[in-house]
């Protein structure tokens, strides 16, 4: 939705400050992924445990109970694993599986995220309710361009070096649920992201997510069909 010029300026300033804070903070996930040479075979072995919940393809569920992990940047995966491991991001079912005594140390986390990043993406992720051409879709596009694109990228591709999640291909239902949790302070997210909830209304945010969910995926990143099954698990 349109915003007054002053509000926009205020928002841009806030964003700049946050970005500065962002670069200043030591990014543990990035340090970890840079410092540990991943071993894919070992990552495949560790992923066995994850697959008990995320399934071998890591494609997530239409209804948004599980995220699509395939195609996600390693630094983003690492950040989420570290947040879940420490309890910073609440995920009680998964938390015990990413502890030192279960999965192991940084090396093992590096291995498993590297493995996940080799998986092709779900060719049919859940889309939002408003198709391209609808006014809601167009509004979402405008919101996205103003507020989200700078971090999540023009095509929703995210940014590995800065650990901005790839949203392209993520289930709309999952994103909507995460946004609801984050807005109600039930999921702790980076300040860079949480500032958005004051600037952007729930409705506008939802339209932006709808828009993202309709973005095309690069053919090379996608599995050949919905029936594709991870051969490592056959």
């Amino acid at each position: 939705m349109p915003m007054s010029a002053r509000a926009k300026l205020g928002f841009a300033l806030a964003l700049l400050l946050l970005l500065a804070a962002n670069t200043a903070r030591a990014l543990e996930p990035i340090t970890v992924t840079l410092e540990f040479q991943p071993d894919l075979a070992d990552g495949r072995y560790s992923y066995d445990i994850c697959a008990r919940c995320h399934l071998p393809e890591a494609w997530g569920n239409d209804d948004g109970t599980y995220p699509q992990l395939a195609g996600q940047h390693v630094n983003v995966l690492m950040k989420q694993l570290l947040d879940i491991r420490s309890g910073r991001r609440s995920n009680p079912a998964m938390q015990p599986f990413v502890q030192q005594r279960t999965i192991g140390g940084y090396q093992d986390l590096a291995n498993v995220v590297a493995y996940i990043s080799t998986l092709p993406m779900n060719p049919r992720h859940a889309k939002g309710p408003w198709p391209p051409g609808s006014p809601e879709h167009a509004e979402g596009e405008a919101v996205y361009a103003t507020y989200c694109q700078s971090c999540h990228g023009a095509g929703g591709e995210g940014d590995n070096t800065r650990a901005y999640p790839r949203l392209q291909g993520q289930h709309y239902s999952y994103m909507a649920r995460q946004a609801r949790l984050a807005r109600d302070n039930l999921r702790r997210v980076d300040a860079s992201m949480s500032a958005l909830f004051t600037a952007v209304s729930a409705t506008d945010f939802d339209r932006a997510l709808n828009y993202i969910s309709h973005l095309p995926l690069p053919a090379a990143d996608v599995a050949p069909g919905v029936d594709w099954r991870n051969p490592d698990f056959q």
């Binding site: 066995d48 008990r52 399934l55 079912a93 938390q95 015990p96 599986f97 502890q99």
Partner: peptide, 28 residues
């Protein structure tokens, strides 16, 4: 997704699963 071979990894996972659940229901 069924893993019907029994192994120690599954054994450990069953306890980890329960621990995560108890934490959620009572403590976390």
């Amino acid at each position: 997704h069924l893993i019907d071979r029994w192994d120690t990894q599954g054994g450990q996972a069953s306890l980890a699963w329960a621990e995560g659940m108890y934490r959620d229901l009572f403590y976390g």
